[in-house]
Nucleic acid binder design. Structure first.
Lengths: 110, 110
DNA sequence: CTGAATCCAGCAGGATACTG
DNA sequence: CAGTATCCTGCTGGATTCAG
């Protein structure tokens, strides 16, 4: 990483990229949820059951953020009872291999 | 990621790895500091100057955490004035290529 | 020079109840 | 079924001062 001592860190393009990337993966459950979804399409209820101990509020807001970030897409069907499915976007799938690598870091420092 | 519906998430080994990895990279500056150091050896003052806007307290505690995690090593010389140098451990260097990849995630979602 | 100590604000994340 | 609405708490990171 080369340094161009500008006075503000926030103007460093590398810093901006890192911040962006951290937005996708940081948070107690975020990365785990993405890897859990993987290439599947899952309903809200399925995700919820796969994440025991994560409250509705937290799961819902994480999913919302991930959709807003462009990692996942949400598809709602106008049925009764309601059905909502989540899957990775193309960008999400692009990022997936790298995200899986992050687990290796966990192994290195075990 | 395959799921074996055990009742507690914290007993899932994959979750543990992810949590471990997140410990290394999450935090507003942590990942940036690691990439900034890269293969170099830098003194505290140099790091501090490369990180305008990061207070002494935050920098010092981040470095301490990174040393505790085994990512960096700290070498202090008994001189006056004191000299302290930081560099990546072998484990840190092992992780470096993956950490660099994380920036690509930032590019994907730009 | 290299930090530690203190004090403090904001927000991510959790518990629980309720709605379309 | 798929979420909101509230309310609450602890931790992360920031400002400033002090010390070896």
């Amino acid at each position: 990483m080369s340094k161009s001592n500008r006075s503000e860190l926030s103007s460093d393009p590398e810093f901006q990229l890192i911040t962006k990337a951290l937005g996708v993966i940081s948070g107690k459950w975020r990365l785990y949820i993405i890897l859990l979804l993987g290439d599947q399409t899952l309903r809200y209820r399925q995700l919820s059951e796969m994440l025991p101990g994560v409250s509705e509020k937290v799961l819902a807001s994480e999913l919302k953020s991930l959709v807003a970030l462009g990692v996942m897409k949400r598809t709602a069907y106008a049925e009764i009872p309601p059905r909502v499915e989540y899957s990775l976007t193309r960008k999400g799938q692009l990022a997936l291999p790298i995200l899986k690598k992050i687990q290796e870091i966990g192994q290195i420092f075990n």
